[in-house]
Amino acid sequence: MAKPPTAHTVRSFDAEINQLRSLIGQMGGLAEAQIADSVDALMRRDADAATAVVLRDKELDAMEAEAERLALTIIAVRAPMADDLREIVAALKISAVIERIGDYGKNIAKRVPVLTQAAPVGPSVILPEMARATTGMIRDALDCYVDRDAELASQVMARDRMVDDFYNSLFRSLLTYMMENPHHITSSAHLLFIAKNLERVGDHATNIAEMVYFSVTGEHPGDRTKTDRTASMAVSDREGE
């Protein structure tokens, strides 16, 4: 059989799909930067940099609106079918998820001023590593979307476990840290939220990878198991170790 054609007979349809793909790619890049920059501002104790992150969130909101407008136009004008339809619907959902990731970046940045006014908290040194793990997932989830790569999507899904492990470990350390000195509670509580935000970013990147997997293959990936165990974690857990 001849090599299947990949271009549409109507070339402007391809142009529109490419435009949407590239917009989603840009959104992913910006969301990744927001997460990286917010944690960076936190670690450098730089309130101005954090403010810049908060202000930049508007750009993501605007891009999401643009992606929605583009996707709706394609659906209305082209009546996409099969893998095209799955891709456009995935793009719509992915843009909403990326916007949410941006919100987490903003949320982290908003906590930076109060944290810079207190003494640094020991366990926070793990945050840059955790942020790198999540931003790497965002980057690869978006790469597999742009390249329609189901194989890479599966790998991204598997990496969520690592982010969950970071979170479990940080959660435990912060509980202990707060017990040892009540003066650390304010900072530690904020850091717990930041860690939780990063953990959610990992979940969202995983969701994007799942959407890409479905968009490319037409099948849903198998159920993944959540490895965030903090819901049942208490300080006494540590005593048994």
């Binding site: 299947p4 054609p5 990949t6 549409h8 007979t9 079918m81 099969a82 095209d84």
Partner: peptide, 19 residues
Amino acid sequence: IFTNPRETRTKDYITGRYG
């Protein structure tokens, strides 16, 4: 057929990639 066709030729036709 219209959301997840099995055959490449079907997919190419219904998505407007045929010929």
